[in-house]
Write a protein that binds this DNA or RNA. Sequence first.
RNA 1: GGCCCGGUAGCUCAGCUGGAUAGAGCACCAGCCUUCUAAGCUGGGGGUCAUUGGUUCGAAUCCAAUCCGGGUCACCA
Length: 599
Amino acid sequence: MTIASQIKHAAEDALKNLYPGVAIDISMIGVNQTKPEFAGDYTIVLFPFLKLLKQKPDIIGKQLGDYLLQKNELFSSYEIVSGFLNLAVKDTWWVSFLMNHFTDAHYGEKSKADRRVMIEYSSPNTNKPLHFGHLRNNFLGAAMAEILKATGNQVVKANLINDRGIHICKSMVAWMKFAHGATPESTGIKGDHLVGDYYVKFNDEYKQEIAALTARGMDEKMAEKEAPIMRDAQDLLRKWEAGDTEVRELWQMMNGWVYKGFDESYKRLGISFDKVYYESDTYLLGKKIVEEGLRKKVLFKKEDGSVWIDLTDEGLDQKLLLRGDGTSVYMTQDLGTAKLKYDEFKLNQSVYVIADEQNYHIQVLKLIMKKLGEPCADGIYHLSYGMVELPTGKMKSREGTVVDADDMVSEMINLSKEQTETSGKTEGFSADELVKLYETIGMGALKFYLLRVDPKKKMIFDPKESIDLHGYTATFIQYAHARICSILRKENIPLSPDCTKFQSFVQTSELAPLEKKIILALEEYPLILSEAADGFNPSSICNYSFQLAQMFNTFYDAHSISKAESDEKKQLRLMIIIMTASVLRHAMHLMGIKLPEKM
RNA sequence: GGCCCGGUAGCUCAGCUGGAUAGAGCACCAGCCUUCUAAGCUGGGGGUCAUUGGUUCGAAUCCAAUCCGGGUCACCA
């Protein structure tokens, strides 16, 4: 139990004893960290009790304070300032907290429960390489998977690859027309980029054809349908669905190039999956569910044979679930996949990391499943995130205005190289170590930049201003960690020291404010972790980590550790920084960010 | 138009289950390296928390309306 909730319960108990017969609910008791300008560690707000207890705040505060001090081992003193009861927790409590946890590499984690969660993320189309927006999705999904694991869930990381459909046919058509047999091997271009180039080529050609047709007097809607290259793409899609051998072979070859490219990118990004679904395997799955829905009369058929659901009672619209010709739409396959996932893994929760433009879609998906009485419905959760935009607006791969993910990674690694070199910090590293270090710093900066913002907010990214390695960044946290490691190296203390190291520590002197401040922050970590899990929000962990690193830097500047004023202080401070480094490592590990021991 | 989301310092963002004088980072200004890593630390300027009204002892936070920005409402995915 956290110290804050211990205090809450102690206060509840105190009030019930002091004012028997008065209904005090624990939810009325507000406990916050005391503002730095006042003495004390935690504050109980007295205003909510005034009416109920018919007393002045000073009187309630005094009674409550006296009671807590007398009956509870936790507190050393209290002070009442205009309606706020500021309680000081005994130093001995903080020190024993520190001694109990400072070597625990899993501090903050919850024990494994029988709760199975799938988190689907990444889910790329196979017609183009990953761009900056996909990175947000990938990092969010990977971070949430780790956070959910750390908070006791059994997590399945899933990727649903959109490997079929008109988009990939477009790349195929353009490749057949213009590539003259070019392959990743023959051109030296990474497979996903090569295929993406032909997707852009398709759209260039398509635009020209539309222009040519409208110039001859065709109206634009018609021209969009009639453009020969588009007809070719649609023709290809039909052949694909019919299982045409040649088309399937080409499709497999080009997708193969893309997967090879993706694998490289994923590896570099540190992204992995436990389960990969392919849309080409799952796109037909929903039809059974639709038939069942018709039988149950949850769905209805229109004259042309198309199948719909009526959601107007829920304030939504009618939604198409099956085309008139019996072929499935996006929603059809999502229904099938949702059920497949549930049946395969007996999921308690199924999380979809998908951009907020699909809020409506997922809402409808969940609603349909509910109406069909499918048990998977309740577990569906949409981790909706805002899109990454450029100062000029949305990124559009068709128009080539995207910031490419691979480019961005290289750029960040270069930036970290430049910065390290210009500040002359390359000394004492081998060439190999430097390569690793630049990777650690560059990737860390990128991940942190995308994870530090509340997922549901959209981001505007200005590539010209690039990304900083100062201030609220992973670099800042990495630097604090490296400083701690440097001290520990000099003191010959391993990163995870055995528990016997400071066992004989006896505290005699008072904690300095900065010492206590860090211990208080460390105590909060489990709470931060579980809030991040509950709110599906990794940014709170970024925020916390930055603040903790900042506290350490201030502390480091104000107090010497190696040359502390006494051996007692030195031991205490070593324990503090060992635990600080450990928590930073833990938190950043969840974000997929490594912390170097030297930088 | 219906539904959903956002609007906090010049910029990027915390804070939003109501609590003390609204916080960081960047940028700007002034200091701090014979002492454990200056990718750091300290201090400073900078705010009608979109607007209006309401609830409350107390509102950036809750409610209502309005304004601005975005998303979505396809036999696309």
